[in-house]
Design a protein around this nucleic acid. Structure first.
Length: 449
DNA sequence: TGAAATGTTGGGGCG
DNA sequence: ACGCCCCAACATTTC
């Protein structure tokens, strides 16, 4: 008997850890540990997605003659305990790159025969390196090297049947509502992948930036929990071909780039990648932070993004950049406060990608946006939500504001404010900071560094 | 995967 | 006809 320890690979198709456990022979015990250290963190939407995903995985396993065993506690205790309980030969699991995962797995490996199998990305962490062996810290050369490696092989098929599982105690999966816009499970993930490949991918180059259209794949929650493998996505992108598919492939490579960064530079989780930018004089402004979190900054496109996040656990990527830029460059609040808030809200919240994105915005990271690259929330809105439909959807108090003013409603004459039932200061806040002033303030704060 | 400030050009109004 | 100014449009530089 071998244990298949499931962590962020909630799928039966193209699962190298499962395949390895099966190939070892003697039976496979699928196990998930509800890790108190992770699940005590506030992230209800993501946990709801995970729990519902575990229920579906259990159903899928039962269909093939197996079942999911769930335990709660510290994996460093529970995995060895379970291994003794069933006299397991080996424990198979997909290799993960976060510092927490590396420590956890090292502690488990000291007690049982832990076989870590590559499968998180297309290429193993540490495989995409410079000619001198060092890690890349800039995306473009990284992606070039990534593409120069052998193309991924065909995804592994779903096993036709699985060995039966002995009678064992299994914890009840906690009951939390799953986010309704993201039904979990690998069947759903594959359906969405196909819909994307057969539709929006051709226009992805521009479509992905449009806040008011469904131009993105919205697959991030599924990739985050491995309901879809990186290889399945990349193979589909390669088959789709065309410029849109190429752009999407690059987005997939960004995920692996940031996984590689976290693997090689774990300190990014505790501060700036570039130490020189560790000491920016951030503002301590709890009121402003709360206004940003609540979507009450007075900048419609910022507020729309933040409310989409709070309501659905997901935010359009362009909106992530706009809202992040606003927190860091307009409010001059430490990007780490934003990183924490996103991790709390996001269904797809992943330390590597989230940290990479925030450091990029703050200009503190690898391949970072130069400090003087500051988004103007009005122009960004006009460019990527030209009709204002995204704003009207998520900021309903602006629903009747005409197109001309939708991204700068404070410029509306008083009569138009009353006519559209959007009186600034009554129905919708005035901007909490003036952009031109904030821009200047940030340039000075960063220039001192 | 910016935006603002500054510089340049050229058409057209006008005396 | 000519010079002057305005300014939109575009280009370049700067943050």
């Amino acid at each position: 008997m071998n244990i298949w320890w499931i962590r962020r690979d909630l799928r039966l198709a193209d699962n190298p850890a499962l395949a390895a456990a099966l190939a070892a022979g003697g039976g496979v015990l699928p196990v998930f540990i509800l890790d108190d250290a992770l699940l005590s963190q506030p992230a209800e939407k993501r946990q709801g997605f995970l729990y519902a995903g575990l229920n579906i995985l259990d159903e899928d396993l039962r269909r093939l003659g197996s079942r999911l065993i769930v335990r709660r506690g510290d994996p460093r205790v529970e995995i060895p305990r379970l291994a003794r309980e069933v006299a397991a030969g080996s424990v198979f699991a997909e290799h993960d790159v976060s510092p927490y995962a590396l420590r956890r797995d090292a502690a488990v490996a000291a007690q049982v025969d832990l076989r870590l199998v590559h499968g998180l990305g297309v290429h193993p962490a540490g495989a995409v390196t410079r000619p001198d062996g060092g890690p890349y810290t800039v995306f473009t050369p990284y992606s070039r090297a990534w593409k120069a490696l052998p193309a991924p092989g065909q995804p592994l098929p779903t096993p036709a049947a699985l060995p039966p599982v002995p009678e064992l105690h299994s914890e009840t999966i906690p009951d939390l509502p799953a986010p309704e816009n993201f039904p979990p499970g690998e069947r759903e993930a594959r359906g969405r992948l196909n819909a994307f490949i057969n539709g929006p991918i051709d226009a992805y180059g521009d479509g992905r930036n449009r806040l008011d259209l469904d131009g993105t794949s919205a697959l991030s929650p599924y990739l985050r929990f491995g309901m879809l493998s990186a290889r399945q996505a990349v193979v589909a992108a390669r088959r789709a071909a065309g410029p849109g598919a190429e752009t999407w492939l690059n987005e997939l490579i960004w995920r692996e780039f940031y996984q590689s960064i976290l693997y090689h530079f774990p300190h990014v989780l505790h501060g700036a990648f570039r130490p020189a930018l560790q000491s920016i004089p951030w503002r301590d402004a709890p009121e402003d932070l709360r206004a940003w979190q609540a979507g009450l900054t007075g900048y419609p496109v910022v507020d729309a993004g933040m409310r989409q996040l709070a309501a659905t656990g997901w935010m359009h990527n362009r909106a992530r950049m706009i809202t992040a830029s606003f927190l860091v460059k307009d409010l001059l609040i430490n990007w780490q406060a934003g990183e924490r808030w996103f991790m709390r809200q996001l269904v797809d919240g992943d330390p590597a990608a989230n940290n990479g994105g925030w450091q990029w915005t703050a200009g503190t990271g690898t391949d970072a946006a130069p400090y003087f690259r500051i988004f103007n929330p009005v122009l960004q809105g006009q460019k990527f939500d030209p009709l204002g439909d995204y704003v009207r959807r998520w900021v309903p108090e602006l629903a009747a504001v005409p197109e001309k003013y939708i991204h700068a409603p404070w410029e509306m004459p008083a009569e138009e404010q009353s006519a559209s039932r959007a009186v600034i200061g009554r129905d919708y806040p005035a901007p909490i900071v003036e952009h031109a002033f904030a821009r200047q303030r940030t340039l000075e704060a960063y220039a001192g560094k």
